[in-house]
């Protein structure tokens, strides 16, 4: 029973990281109506930045994380400006292919700059593990921090969107771009802001991910990125609470199938979940049905 409990906690922790990544997907999808394939690779860049800042520059972990966040934010805005902005009016297939191109570009640049060797990432978290129930359940510092950070981000983001002008602008743009523009909303600025927030969150998720699973390579981001997308679809793409619920559920499903079914097949199980969700409820748990106007 205690092992079940620790699998559950670890699943929630992994799910929290997925949820933070899924937020980036869901916000960008909600506003720019595009699937940002490069999001997973922004995670990888963030992790490398933190790794270099701590390893080569010897900066303290907090500064390293901040540096990673700043670099990823700039990267996110730059990607949007160069690659996606010229394609605002292009068909979604063209944007999707561009996004794959960007993802590939980041991966291969990292491969050339940092090399293909896997690096060992030193955890940024120095909290002692919490031990419950006669030592049966061991919750590591990374697990605690991931869950807490995810909850804080959710609260801050929801308040930001509900209470601030920029947040309301984001809602307006996601609802109707043209109407928002007529009401004086700076659409391009709002889209840039969305990419900035998503990329900053990706950097945080990257550091958390590499602290919990301490290996780092140019391909680190792609698999968690895809799974976070699955989480976003699971919860209902475009919905922020949906990303949270989807992420947590997916993390639990993945950890449970690793523990009780097969560790090699856990990815296959996660993707089977996606296909089942698309079959039964394509809009996801919290997704809204959008009626199309002709």
């Amino acid at each position: 029973m205690s092992s079940f409990f620790s699998y559950l906690i670890n699943g929630i922790s992994l799910g929290s990281i997925y949820a933070i990544i899924a937020l980036g997907y869901t916000m960008v999808y909600g506003i720019a109506k595009m699937l940002n394939f490069a999001h997973g690779d922004v995670i990888m860049v963030g992790s490398y930045m933190a790794f270099l800042a701590m390893g080569s520059l010897g900066l303290p972990p907090v500064v390293a994380v901040l540096l990673a966040v700043v670099v990823c934010t700039i990267l996110g805005i730059t990607i949007e400006k160069i690659a996606y902005k010229p394609l605002r009016k292009a068909p979604s297939l063209a944007v999707l292919i561009t996004a794959i191109g960007v993802s590939y570009f980041l991966q291969n640049t990292a491969l050339l700059v940092f090399g293909a060797n896997t690096k060992m990432f030193t955890s940024v978290i120095k909290l002692p593990p919490v031990i419950l129930g006669d030592g049966g359940v061991n919750i590591s510092g990374e697990t605690q921090v991931a869950i807490v950070v995810c909850i804080i981000i959710m609260i801050v983001l929801t308040t930001f969107i509900k209470k601030t002008k920029a947040g309301q602008a984001m809602l307006a743009v996601s609802e109707d771009k043209g109407a928002a523009e007529l009401m004086g909303v700076n659409v391009n600025g709002t889209i840039s802001l969305t990419f900035a927030i998503g990329s900053a969150l990706a950097a945080i998720a990257g550091v958390l991910l590499c602290s919990a699973y301490p290996t780092l390579s140019p391909y680190t981001g792609s698999m968690p990125g895809i799974k976070a997308f699955v989480a976003a679809v699971f919860g209902g793409i475009g919905s922020i609470p949906g990303a949270f619920i989807g992420g947590i559920l997916l993390g639990i499903i993945e950890n449970m199938s690793k523990a009780y079914i097969s560790s090699q097949l856990s990815d296959a199980i996660v993707f089977t979940v996606l296909i089942i969700v698309l079959l039964v409820k394509p809009t996801g748990i919290l997704g809204k049905k959008i009626n199309e106007k002709v």
Binding site: A83, P86, L87, A90, A94, I97, T98, S103, Y104
Partner: peptide
Amino acid sequence: NDYRMLIYSIVLIVMMIFNWSPKA
């Protein structure tokens, strides 16, 4: 060979922008 995939990724991005960007 080391740069092959990098070149491919740039080909993808440039082709799409060249085809669809209003300025292009």
